[in-house]
Simulated assay, not measured.
Amino acid sequence: MTIQVEEGLARGGTLTLPEIATRPEVAEYTRISVPTLARWASEMPPRGPKFKKAGGRVLYKRQDVLDWIDSLEESA
């Protein structure tokens, strides 16, 4: 399955991702819905960007999100 991220928003647009981002922030940045990110995270093995859980919240490091986007470009 190929996953596409709109490059204009993710790399060339005006939206920036904080160093530590929440799932809604990652969803907005990548234009992938929050439910899709949640479903991918619950699959074994997980898909999507690496994440950590902290106090019941799901958090993403900005670099992990960018690395994941780069990995999609390499496999496309």
Rank of each mutant, 00 (worst) to 15 (best):
M1H: 08
V5H: 01
E6P: 05
E7S: 12
L9R: 15
L9V: 14
A10K: 04
R11F: 09
R11D: 06
G12P: 00
G13W: 01
G13Y: 02
T14C: 08
T14M: 08
L15W: 00
T16I: 05
T16N: 07
L17S: 05
E19D: 13
I20A: 10
T22E: 02
R23A: 14
P24M: 11
V26Y: 03
V26M: 03
A27I: 08
A27S: 15
A27V: 11
E28Q: 12
E28L: 10
T30W: 03
T30Y: 00
R31Y: 05
I32Y: 00
I32A: 00
S33I: 06
V34G: 00
T36S: 07
T36K: 04
R39Q: 12
W40G: 08
W40K: 09
A41F: 03
E43S: 12
E43A: 12
E43T: 11
E43P: 05
P46V: 10
P46S: 15
P46M: 07
G48D: 01
G48S: 09
G48H: 00
P49D: 05
P49Q: 06
K53G: 07
G55Q: 02
G55Y: 02
G55A: 03
G55N: 02
G55F: 01
G56I: 11
V58D: 03
V58A: 14
K61E: 14
R62W: 02
Q63M: 09
L66Y: 02
L66T: 10
D67M: 09
D67C: 08
W68D: 08
D70N: 14
D70H: 05
D70Q: 14
S71C: 07
S71M: 10
S71V: 10
S71D: 05
L72K: 02
L72M: 04
L72Q: 01
E73Q: 14
S75C: 10
